[in-house]
């Protein structure tokens, strides 16, 4: 119970902080919309309405991944820079329980971009999305964000030693957009890519959101998205523990 509260409060305060930064907040909503706009134009040229609708759903999910991938790598360095990293590690709470809410809050910011992109598509491009199962859609979007937050957690703890971690954002953003079925069906990718896609939570999360929006059974995808996300979290927890242990040996928590 108190763990749940801790995660909730951590998530809420991190969200507050991020919404107050134009970089994390405004940009992560606006930036994916440029890509979405390009994509809407591409599909409009083709004239196939069903494809356009499906693309709109996929494009709206892109922002959730951007919000995570571009910021997760630098989270811990940010904490270190402001001198809070030592305080977090020095608290009796497990380090993972401190970082997961932070990365999930990044994904939450991405949900704004999801909504904004859908509205943009509706208002500017007149893309009609029926939302056959509105409630399932909401669940699928939340699960997508949560799972991507867990991926972000793994990214955060594994890139802390990488001094130029900010450069990693651009490393992960496009590849995941490409191979996780946001817009490109897995079937047109080379065969060897498919198993990699299956291991990535966004693949299942995006499929779930799409199913829920366009009428399909989203529940298996939702379950797989959670399952793969949880697997990343477990790896993350192990890495986080090793990270903290090695920091105690090597004195790498403080900036000096």
């Amino acid at each position: 119970m108190s763990t749940l509260r801790l995660v909730a409060v951590g998530w809420w305060l991190q969200l507050k902080m991020r919404s107050r930064s134009s970089f994390d907040g405004l940009l992560s909503i606006v930036y994916p919309m440029f890509f979405a706009t390009t994509i809407f134009f591409m599909y409009r040229e083709n004239g196939d309405e069903a494809a356009l609708v499906s693309a709109a759903v996929g494009a709206s999910c892109m922002g959730v991944w951007s919000a995570v991938s571009t910021t997760a790598s630098t989270t811990l360095q940010g904490e270190r820079r402001q001198g809070t990293l030592e305080l977090l590690v020095g608290s009796p709470t497990s380090f993972s329980l401190v970082i997961v809410p932070a990365t999930v809050s990044m994904a939450t910011i991405g949900l704004w971009s999801l909504v904004a992109t859908l509205l943009w598509g509706r208002v500017v491009f007149g893309i009609p999305i029926s939302f056959d199962q509105p409630l399932v859609f909401v669940v699928a979007a939340l699960v997508l964000a949560f799972s991507l937050g867990l991926v972000g957690f793994l990214q955060a703890v594994s890139s802390v030693r990488y001094r130029s971690a900010w450069a990693l954002g651009s490393l992960f953003e496009f590849p995941v957009w490409l191979i996780c079925g946001f817009l490109v069906p897995l079937s047109i990718l080379p065969d060897w890519v498919r198993p990699i896609s299956w291991l990535l939570p966004p693949t299942w999360g995006v499929a779930a959101v799409r199913d829920a929006a366009l009428g399909g059974n989203a529940w298996p995808d939702i379950a797989l998205c959670l399952l793969t996300g949880a697997a990343y979290a477990v790896i993350g927890v192990v890495l986080a523990r090793r990270l903290v242990d090695s920091a105690r040996v090597n004195a790498t928590l403080a900036l000096t």
Partner: peptide, 26 residues
């Protein structure tokens, strides 16, 4: 020194956060 605080949060929120981390009952 002036580090070790969340600049973008209020003083109250900073305290709330660490109260959670230290398991102070709600």
């Amino acid at each position: 020194g002036d580090k070790g605080l969340y600049e973008r949060l209020s003083g109250l929120d900073n305290l709330r956060y660490f109260a959670e981390l230290y398991g102070v009952p709600a």
